[in-house]
Structure formats: C-alpha cells, structure tokens
Write a protein that binds this DNA or RNA. Structure first.
Lengths: 170, 170
DNA sequence: CCAAACTCGGACACATCTTGTCCGAGAAAA
DNA sequence: TTTTCTCGGACAAGATGTGTCCGAGTTTGG
C-alpha cells in the first residue's frame, strides 16, 4: 500500500468504494471465481483490507463467495442489472449522509412535538439532495462502466485483464 | 449537550452543518449582531463548538463578526442570495466526497499515464453524482428555508425568535 | 483619556470512526 | 483422509471529527 487518500474536505466517503467498483468491473470479464488476493495485487492494494470490502459485497448479495482450493468471488447477477448505487450502499452503508437531530424541539423556544408533523425544512432539502445523488448513481450500471473502459482504453484492455486473472500467479 | 449523532451509515457529513444552517435561518429575523453564546442556548448545543462553525462561516464571508460589548454575528448578504450549498461548503469544505486514486495506473497491468487523457469512468460517474447533489443544494436559499418555516410553524415563530434573541438573557 | 467588560479567534485534548491486519473455520481437491 | 486453499469475523493503529479552553482585540462607559 503506497499512499492513503488525499481528501482535503470533510464530506467524504469510504475509500474502499473505489476498490470495490474496480473489482466489480474486472469481474465482468471472467466466469471462474477470482480470489481476493489476486484482485488485490492486480490493483496494488492491501489484500487484507480489500477482503473486507468484498465481504460487504457478499453480504449485500452482489457477489457470491466460493470457498475451497479454486474458490474466489463471482458476480451473482448480470452486470447490466448491478448499479453503482448498489455497490456504494453495500460498502458505505445505506444511511443518508445527513441525519436530522430535531434541533427545533430543543431549547427555550422548542417547537412542541405535536406541531412537528412535517419534517424539518432543512432535513427536507438535504434529503432531496441525497435522493438526487443516489438517482445519479442508480442510472449507471457496472456494464456501462465496463463499456466505457473498452471505449477509452481499447477493447483489448479487459481481455488482457481476464487473461491475467485466470493465469496462475507469477 | 445531550446526544451525538445517530448516524449508522458511513457516508456522513459533519454534524455541525445542521447547526450552522439553523443559525443562518434565525439570523434572518434580526438586524443587530447576535453572540454565539445566545445562539447556542437557543438551540441547546455546545457554545464552544458552535463558535467553531460560525468561524467557518465568517471565513467564507457569509457572516460578519462584530467584536466588543454589543458584538456578535450578522449575515453579510441578503438571505435570498445565500444558498444552502454555500453553508455546506463553508463548514464541511469544498472538496467532493469522492477522490480518484488512479488505481488504473497501478499494478502489473497498469495503464500508462500517457493513455489516461480522459478521467476514470468511475470518477466521472461519481463526479456527476456529486454535481447533482450540489445543484440540488444550490437551488435552495436561506430565505426559502425561512419562508418554509413560516409556512409550517406559523408566521409568529420567527417573530418570537427575533424577540428572544434581542432580549437580554434570563 | 483610561479602564473594564464582553466578544471573537485560534490553539489544545478527547472520542469516534475509518483504515489496516491478523488468525481461525470451512470447503473443495488430491 | 489429508492437505491446501479460500473466506469470515474478531483484533489493533492511525486519522478525523468533536468538544473545550484561554488569549487578542474591540467597543462601551466613566
């Protein structure tokens, strides 16, 4: 593992999401199970930590884990039916970024709970923004990503990856 | 200070954003400077920590700090010209949630840097989602929030807040 | 003009979370 | 049956967010 995240801001998401997405894309090109170790050295990342992300994907039902000597991970569904949002929610959790603390019900001028039938305006705006974010991630599938990679890096790229993944290690 | 955040997921933003937004909304109803201490006890939150958020707003130029005996914080611009995104970026930082680590340039099958003219497909999707999120926050202003509060809690609500803020403390 | 009181501002600890690592349970192959 | 390889969850370390404190600066009053 070389360097951590370079994030400067504070609104940040788990760095493992990037790893998980790359793994899903490369798993598009293979049919046999691929162990976590192999995926880790392909991306040059920590094998132990990548395993944790793959476990999250397994728990969410996006990939199927096969144990034993020729075991590894395989995609369970068609790549076109797996959205980026699915992966993000599997790794980073399904909870929204913003959670209303109901400040309006606190302090000397607290609004009575009976008057709080509608959600706080602030929470409403945040919820809407979160919905827009999720919708943008839902419209893109893993298959779309793979197609995009083929368009930019050439169709030979994923073929080489597939060959490297299925070949016994150096 | 009663309880912290109840966030379960991992994609989370600073909790102070909620405080800062509430402060901006209530500052709509006053013209004289309001000290951080007063705002803190109105919301029943830590005064010392709220001060930090207000400092961030001051640094971003959203509020103006007045020192001295009758000092405090005042909005610099018209509430209609301050967007929710302005506040979020001031407190939580302007950086996007996702930062590409350029995994494709690492490992045995690394893509050469010369071939990376276009950004990584994954980064592109994440960037688009982040743009949609920011756009949703940009379309709502502090004035809109205040208006929304008046619609739900009644027009008397902000008047009472204004009166309480300008009245010497209990 | 001077002193006092009140304010913000940045520098200092604590708690929580993400990141990273390890070893044991389980299954397929030999 | 044994061996080997895999995943799975439990265990520390670093980083970040959270919370607090005291000093610098300014306005007000005498």
């Amino acid at each position: 593992m070389i360097g951590g995240l370079i994030t400067v801001g504070r609104v940040k998401m788990s760095g493992g999401v990037e790893w998980a997405l790359h793994c899903c894309v490369v798993l598009t090109s293979v049919e046999e199970p691929v162990p976590a170790t192999r995926l880790a050295e392909l991306h040059d990342v920590s094998a132990s930590y990548l395993a944790k992300q793959l476990q999250a994907l397994s728990r969410a039902g996006l990939v199927r884990s096969v144990q034993g000597k020729a075991g590894g991970y395989v995609l369970t569904r068609e790549p076109a039916s797996i959205t980026v949002l699915d992966v993000v929610e599997a790794v980073d959790g399904p909870s929204p970024a913003f959670t209303c603390t109901e400040i309006r019900q606190r302090g000397p001028l607290a609004t009575p709970a009976e008057a709080c039938t509608t959600p706080c305006p602030i929470a409403r705006v945040m919820g809407g923004a979160d919905a827009a974010w999720r919708e943008a991630l839902r419209t893109v599938s893993i298959a779309d990503l793979a197609q995009d990679v083929a368009s930019t890096s050439g169709p030979t790229a994923l073929a080489r990856v597939s060959a490297w993944l299925t070949t016994p290690q150096t």
